[in-house]
């Protein structure tokens, strides 16, 4: 029971990170079209450094994994050293670009391109962590069968979330043409990569799909969310579209996590054998509860102040 809770907490943080950071990363893409998307200032405002709070979610995900499942740290740390360090290298470059673009008033095409590249390459390198968790294969982390659909899923996820967010946020009709083209393109990529991902899973890690009796429930929820988001897309309900897409991404993440349980890293590390000392965990759970009492109201306060701006 405790172990499931311990798995759920970093997952929630990861979802929050995915959601907020997709908006940020997507911005780097839209910033490449300053002529078409004329509300440059709006984009910058949305990504203004206040959004750096989102980094906290990633820090939390990492902290939770290594404090709740210390034994897994050894395996993650040893085998993911290359992708993680490269990803952080890109995050470092990204921060430098943010300083240039948003603090230094130093705007040039080159910096925008570097910003875009670092924003889109960092999550790709992070995503090889998923491949490692699913296959446990350490020899080729970047070019296995599973990598391609996961890369595509990550990229389409970024574009879908950020595109729908800006459609809701901008209210500037002249931008819609481009945004809707990007959105429909990423819809196609998303669906195709999801299908490809399932196909690859059947071939490489069929245990994930066979072990869970609720598979049909999961897939029907995903299909339902996908269809309803399409309806909102066509009907131009911008806020509802953003919300359903967020839910859809959440559903995909959570269902694949559920299918993957009890393994953290297949086949050796499970949430049970890597679990920390029970007393430590209970203390952390208490502090988590107490911390949230402070964090959630202040987060709400922050976003209220921000959106009213």
């Amino acid at each position: 029971m405790y172990q499931l809770l311990a798995a759920l907490i970093p997952l929630v943080f990861l979802y929050a990170y995915m959601l907020f950071t997709s908006i940020e990363y997507g911005t780097s893409f839209f910033l490449l079209f300053p002529k078409i998307l004329r509300n440059d200032i709006l984009l910058k405002q949305a990504i203004s450094p206040i959004w750096e709070t989102t980094n906290v979610f990633l820090v939390f995900t990492i902290i939770c994994i290594f404090t709740f499942f210390p034994k897994s740290t050894y395996f993650f740390g040893t085998n993911l050293i290359v992708p993680l360090l490269i990803a952080f290298l890109f995050l470092g470059v990204r921060s430098a670009c943010m300083l240039f673009l948003f603090y230094g008033d130093m705007d040039s095409k080159l910096i925008r391109i570097v910003f875009f590249l670092s924003c889109f390459l960092a999550p790709l390198f992070f995503s090889s962590g998923f491949v490692y968790m699913i296959t446990g294969n350490t020899t080729n982390l970047f070019l296995q069968n599973l990598n391609l659909p996961i890369y595509a899923l990550v990229l389409s996820n970024i574009l879908l979330i950020s595109g729908s967010f800006y459609q809701f946020y901008s209210k500037n009709k002249s931008d819609f043409h481009l945004l809707r083209r990007i959105l429909s393109f990423s819809y196609v990529i998303f669906v195709l990569s999801l299908i490809l991902f399932m196909y690859d899973l059947i071939h490489t890690s069929s245990w994930m799909l066979l072990s869970d009796a609720n598979l049909h429930i999961y897939s029907s929820i995903i299909i339902f969310l996908l269809l309803s988001s399409l309806v909102f897309f066509v009907a131009r309900k911008h806020l509802l579209l953003f919300l359903t897409i967020s839910l859809l991404m959440g559903a995909v993440l959570f269902f694949f996590a559920l299918l993957h349980l009890p393994y953290l890293i297949y086949p050796s590390i499970t949430i049970y054998n890597a679990f920390t000392d029970l007393k430590t965990f209970q203390l952390m759970l208490w502090s988590f509860g107490i911390g949230m009492v402070f964090v959630i109201p202040s987060l709400i306060f922050l976003y209220i102040l921000l959106l009213k701006e």
Binding site: I63, T67, Y74, G77, I81, T276, T280, M284, S287, V295
Partner: peptide, 27 residues
């Protein structure tokens, strides 16, 4: 965690609490 995995495996178990609390303070 990548350079000192053996250290972090032990540290996470014994001294994980302050790391966790630090996350909240940072937040």
């Amino acid at each position: 965690s990548t350079l000192w995995p053996t250290f972090m495996a032990l540290a996470g178990k014994v001294i994980g609490l302050p790391f966790f609390l630090e996350g909240f303070a940072f937040f």
